[in-house]
């Protein structure tokens, strides 16, 4: 296990974030922008799960669920951090509702202007 493995998963995660940021900044298509937002959202939740992951010195890492096979001190030593998981669980559902609202807005804009192209939607008309 080398030094690079101590932070390389985070860097891959930021690359995913950067792809989403690029899509939001460059693309003119509304659907592509929504896809960029979803990519950023996925990257952020992945980052939080990565931060909470734990590999104990001895034994396997375990999900934060007490079972017959794993309980007591052994469980406290091996389980991953439950706090980021609980926060991400909330964030995932909120992300879905935000994306649903964005999709509805895109559909309404397409109904009105007949296109997903932002440069043409920008031309205001009644």
């Amino acid at each position: 296990m080398g030094m690079i493995h101590e932070f390389f998963p985070y860097v891959l995660c930021v690359l995913l974030f950067a792809v989403g940021l690029y899509a939001i900044a460059v693309k003119k298509n509304l659907i592509k922008i929504i896809i960029g937002v979803m990519l950023i959202h996925n990257a952020t939740s992945l980052f939080l799960v990565l931060v909470g992951y734990r590999m104990p010195e001895t034994g396997e890492s375990a999900a934060p669920i007490i079972t017959r096979a794993l309980s007591g001190e052994e469980f406290f030593r091996q389980s991953v951090d439950p706090v980021p998981q609980a926060l991400v669980l909330t964030a995932i559902v909120i992300g879905l509702s935000v994306v649903a609202l964005m999709v509805v807005m895109a559909v309404r804009l397409h109904e009105k202007y007949g296109t997903f192209d932002l440069t043409r939607i920008r031309k205001l008309r009644g």
């Binding site: 939740s45 375990a62 999900a63 389980s79 991953v80 998981q85 991400v88 995932i92």
Partner: peptide, 11 residues
């Protein structure tokens, strides 16, 4: 893989 089964189901 990262031992978050609740998150996997929701995702």
């Amino acid at each position: 893989l990262l031992k978050a089964p609740d998150l996997a189901l929701t995702q």
